[in-house]
C-alpha cells in the first residue's frame, strides 16, 4: 500500500470516528446489563376471539384482547421490547372471510407489533389481497427470499429491518417457504422463491459487517422440521447451515415448543429456534441480557430455557 493512500484511509477512518464521538454521547451506556425482550407469535390464522369452553384442547385459550394485556404488562417492565410475528396471520376464522385481513392488521397495529414476515396463507386472497390490506398495518413486513420485484408488493416488503434499543442494534430478516405446490400460482403470481440458506448467509454478513448488529434474528415461515422429508429446508436445518444467527423465530408447522431448541450452528455456536404453535394460544418470550465487554475473555453466554 502506498503511504499516502494509507494516511488518507486512516484519516477518513478517524474523521468518521470523531464525528461518531457525538454519537457516542447520545449512545446510552447500557446499565450493568441491558435486557432486550423479544416477544413473538406465529400462525395466528385470524384467531381474534378466544376459543370457547367446548373447543377441545384449545378450550378457553387464546384471544387478542388478552394477548394485548400481557404484551402491555411486559412492555411496561421493559421498554426494550420487540414484538414479532412469523406469518400466516390470515385465514382460519370468518373474520378473514368477511374483512380480508383488515381486522387482523388493525389489531396487530394496536398491539404495536414491530415486524412480521409473510406466510403461505397470507397469499390466500392473492398478492393483491395482501397488498390491499397493507394500509391497515402500522408495522413493516420483511422477507429476504421472496423476490417481489414483478409484483404489487415490490418495495413494500424489505429483506430486513434494524432496530436500535438503548444503543443495541437488532437486525431482523424474514424468510418464506417455497410457494410452488403449496399455494396456487395465480395467488402468488410472479413472486420468486430464493434459496433460504444462501440468502441467510448474505443477510447475516450484511447485518453483522455493514449494519453492525449486536443481535441477529431470523423471522421464518419455513417450518420447524420435516422428519419425513429430510431434504426440505427447515428452521433446524437453517440453524445448522449458517452462522451468527442468534435466534430463529419460526412458524408454518404449528409446532408447540414448550421451550426454545438449542442448535449448534456451522461454527459450533448456539442458535436458538423457537415456535409457539398456532392460533395465538401462546406468546413466546426470549430475553437477551447484554453486557459491555470489559474483560474480553468472558464472552460465554448462559442459556436458560
Amino acid at each position: 500500500m502506498k503511504r499516502r493512500d494509507f494516511i488518507n484511509r486512516m484519516a477518513i477512518g478517524s474523521a468518521s470516528v470523531t464525528l461518531g464521538g457525538l454519537g457516542l454521547q447520545s449512545f446510552k451506556t447500557p446499565d450493568q446489563s441491558t435486557k432486550i425482550t423479544i416477544l413473538h407469535t406465529n400462525d395466528v390464522h385470524s384467531h381474534i376471539d378466544p376459543f370457547g369452553p367446548d373447543e377441545g384442547r384449545n378450550a378457553n385459550k387464546g384471544g387478542v384482547a388478552r394477548r394485548a394485556a400481557l404484551i402491555n404488562s411486559i412492555r411496561k417492565e421493559n421498554k426494550n421490547t420487540l414484538l414479532l410475528d412469523a406469518g400466516d396471520i390470515f385465514q382460519g376464522t370468518p373474520y378473514f372471510n368477511y374483512y380480508g385481513g383488515e381486522l387482523e392488521f388493525k389489531l396487530m397495529s394496536m398491539l404495536k407489533y414491530d415486524l412480521a414476515t409473510i406466510g403461505n396463507h397470507d397469499f390466500d386472497n392473492g398478492i393483491n389481497g395482501l397488498y390491499a390490506q397493507l394500509p391497515h398495518a402500522e408495522f413493516d413486513f420483511v422477507s429476504a427470499n421472496y423476490d417481489f420485484s414483478n409484483t404489487d408488493l415490490n418495495t413494500h416488503v424489505k429483506p430486513y429491518k434494524v432496530f436500535t434499543k438503548s444503543g443495541i442494534k437488532i437486525g431482523v430478516f424474514g424468510l418464506g417457504i417455497e410457494l410452488k405446490g403449496l399455494v396456487d400460482k395465480k395467488l402468488y403470481k410472479e413472486t420468486k422463491y430464493l434459496d433460504p440458506v444462501e440468502i441467510s448467509t448474505d443477510m447475516v454478513r450484511l447485518l453483522k459487517e455493514e449494519e453492525h448488529c449486536d443481535l441477529v434474528i431470523c423471522l421464518s415461515h419455513l417450518g420447524y422440521n420435516y422428519s419425513r422429508n429430510p431434504k426440505k429446508v427447515s428452521d433446524l436445518k437453517l440453524a445448522e447451515a449458517t452462522k451468527d444467527i442468534d435466534l430463529i423465530i419460526g412458524g408454518h408447522t404449528h409446532t408447540f415448543l414448550p421451550k426454545p431448541t438449542i442448535v449448534k450452528n456451522k461454527e459450533g455456536k448456539n442458535t436458538l429456534v423457537n415456535q409457539v404453535g398456532c392460533y395465538g394460544l401462546y406468546l413466546g418470550q426470549i430475553d437477551f441480557y447484554f453486557d459491555i465487554d470489559k474483560n474480553s475473555s468472558s464472552n460465554a453466554t448462559t442459556i436458560i430455557v
Partner: peptide
C-alpha cells in the same frame, strides 16, 4: 463491544388468567 451474557426463553399462556384489554 457488547456481549450476550444470558439468554432466557419461555412460553407464556394466553388463557383466562389474563384480563382482557
Amino acid at each position: 463491544k457488547l456481549n450476550i451474557q444470558t439468554i432466557e426463553g419461555k412460553r407464556l399462556n394466553i388463557d383466562t388468567t389474563l384480563v382482557e384489554d
